[in-house]
Simulated assay, not measured.
Amino acid sequence: MPVKRTYAHLGDACRAANALDLVGDRWALIVVRELILGPKRFVDLHEAARGITPAVLSDRLRSLQQAGIVEQVTLTDLARTRAYVATEWGRGLETVLAALGQWYFAGPAPDTHGGMTPDATILAMRAMAPPAPTDLPPTALHLYDARRPDPPLRQYHLTAVDQVLKIRAGAAQEPAVTVTTESTVWSEVLFGGLPLADAERDGALRVDGDRHTIERVVGLYAASA
């Protein structure tokens, strides 16, 4: 196997170039994207990074671990399952992903095709988080990826902190409303102009609780766009 020649080896001292030595390979940032909000098993990563082969995923995880961007952890389930998660330094790549998304959106052809994983949708929400009124009640989001067989439901919660929406992984504490939907559908509601009522009518989205709260959340994103 030929030795990989990095920008550093070629004498380029630019820090951006040296960063690309660590995360510039195809799939590297996609793998990190799926680990920023919490740990995932190998099988979950394989299904989230659409099109990646097991061999390539293993290679990217190994490289990212060696670089200190990803680490292996043991889950607290009975099987003591091995999983992967972004390190504190690795989580700093969230701002890089946000900047890349905003840069692409400002380009000549910002439309995209395909679907969004739950974590990718939440990271997009965090990147585009608008100012929020302090009286906005807590909201629970339950998202799944319909492209996966028997997709798991991933839980997130929204709160207003210092007039900014904070979106985090995990169950909400006494939410005023819970939205259960497919992650790409939720992305279309927030960023693609899909009316909330249309998604509900099609059976792709369910609102339990204070409907006005989720209408406010959707309205905040529409106004910021």
Rank of each mutant, 00 (worst) to 15 (best):
A127Q: 06
E174L: 10
V32Q: 00
L20Y: 14
L93V: 01
Q72I: 06
L100P: 09
T53L: 09
A140R: 00
L35M: 05
T6V: 08
Q155S: 12
V3D: 13
Y104N: 13
V23I: 14
P138I: 04
V23P: 01
G209P: 05
E182D: 15
I52C: 13
F105K: 15
A140E: 00
P152W: 03
A17Q: 05
M1G: 15
A19T: 03
C14D: 15
G51F: 11
L205Q: 02
L194W: 03
D150A: 08
L93Q: 01
V179F: 01
G24A: 08
I30H: 13
E71W: 09
V70H: 00
V32G: 03
F42R: 01
A48V: 06
K40S: 10
V23M: 04
G92I: 10
H157F: 07
D21R: 05
T6I: 08
V177G: 01
R82A: 08
A204R: 07
A83E: 04
T181W: 00
M116S: 09
D150H: 10
R206Q: 15
T117I: 05
P131E: 10
I30T: 13
R82N: 11
A225H: 14
G11L: 08
T181A: 01
A197L: 15
M116W: 03
R154G: 04
P138E: 05
E47A: 14
Y104D: 14
L64P: 03
R33W: 01
P131W: 12
V32W: 03
L136S: 02
S224F: 10
P151A: 06
R154Q: 09
V85W: 02
E174M: 11
I69Q: 01
P131K: 13
A55Q: 15
D202A: 14
L61V: 04
V189Y: 01
L196F: 05
A48K: 00
D77L: 08
A140T: 02
E182Q: 10
Q65K: 08
H157G: 05
T53S: 12
R211V: 03
D162E: 15
I30F: 13
V56I: 10
R26W: 13
W103P: 00
P130L: 07
L37E: 07
P175A: 04
D44P: 03
Y84Q: 09
D59Y: 06
L143W: 01
F42T: 04
L100N: 15
V56D: 03
A99H: 12
L190M: 14
A120G: 08
V56E: 06
D208R: 09
A49M: 07
V164D: 11
A98C: 09
A146G: 11
D77Y: 08
K40L: 10
Q163C: 11
G24N: 02
V164R: 11
R147V: 05
H142A: 14
P137Y: 04
A55F: 10
A120V: 05
K40Q: 14
M128P: 00
L194Q: 07
R206M: 11
K40E: 08
R148N: 05
L97M: 09
